[in-house]
């Protein structure tokens, strides 16, 4: 439980506060450094896509932000408030579980393997946390969930259990489930990687809708370069736990400056 080394503000008080800030974030698994002093800001309403070879730390970025695992160094801020830490007696200390639970309310996450609750129907998946965590009445929660299931085009599957849904449908329910918590930030962790090619479109369609119609801040890890390019405000290329290069999609995909980015992109394009 050591405090972060270096100087970190108790909260961000600049004129302009990013929605998410990674400041000097390091994550290790044993000797392996997965994230190496990462600095990254994500602005409100921005869609940032993370690409890179496997093992480059892409997914770790999202998992650290959601605090599914603890970072080893640095601080992550959410809307200017520390996320991984909390203020006590004028210093930053490791966030306790209660604080994390409260902060996580601002973030929604969709997983590669959906992680829907198999013993609950699509609708039950979507009302569970709003009722149990947010304290919504069942009527309110159901109404909210039905709107969202409608938005992802699955209203008629409300009463099906996940085992009856296709991969694409499961992922759309998972998106609805996350949105039902009204998060400010949405994280998409390789949400199409486990899907059959023919259903990827129905999921990307939903994400596209979110980008167009809602002012959500989004972070997405993906292997789909075409989709990343079309939808992102900014693309970050990760290599070895660091951002090797970042920029607007046109710039990064058409005129990558770094050699590693060029190699990665040409290798990926070769494969498709």
């Amino acid at each position: 439980m050591r405090p972060p080394t270096g100087d970190y503000p108790l909260r961000l008080e600049d004129e302009h506060i990013p929605m998410v800030r990674f400041q000097n974030v390091t994550k290790r698994y044993g000797d392996l450094v997965v994230l190496d002093s990462l600095d990254l800001d994500v602005e409100e309403g921005e869609m940032v896509t993370i690409i890179g070879p496997s093992g480059s730390g892409k997914t770790t970025v999202l998992r650290m932000l959601m605090a599914l695992e603890m970072i080893d160094d640095g601080v992550i801020y959410l809307e200017g408030e520390p996320m991984t830490h909390m203020v006590k007696n004028g210093t930053l200390i490791r966030a306790d579980k209660k604080y994390l639970r409260r902060q996580r309310l601002n973030i929604g996450m969709c997983f590669q393997h959906f992680n829907l609750f198999p013993h609950m129907t699509a609708l039950e998946n979507c009302i569970e946390a709003p009722i149990q965590v947010l304290g919504l009445s069942k009527t309110e929660a159901v109404e909210r969930a039905r709107d969202l299931l409608d938005m992802v085009g699955l209203l008629e599957k409300s009463d099906e259990h996940p085992s009856r849904l296709s991969g694409g449908q499961k992922q759309r329910v998972a998106i609805a489930r996350s949105l039902a918590m009204r998060p400010k930030v949405m994280l998409f962790d390789e949400v199409t990687s486990a899907l059959d090619p023919e259903v990827i479109g129905e999921v990307t369609q939903v994400i596209r809708k979110l980008v167009d119609k809602h002012n959500l801040t989004m972070l997405m890890v993906t292997h789909q370069m075409g989709f990343a390019r079309e939808i992102s405000d900014r693309v970050c290329f990760f290599y070895d736990g660091k951002i090797e290069e970042q920029g607007a999609p046109e710039q990064l995909f058409e005129n990558p400056e770094r050699e590693r980015t060029q190699q990665f992109l040409s290798a990926v394009l070769e494969a498709t």
Binding site: M66, R101, I107, M109, F117, H119, E128, V133, R177
Partner: peptide, 24 residues
Amino acid sequence: GQWEAATALSMSPAKMMRRIIFPQ
């Protein structure tokens, strides 16, 4: 993934155990 999904939904440990983990 079930634990993580419940964590991501800010469920308390007791609720997570009772409503998500134990039934499965």
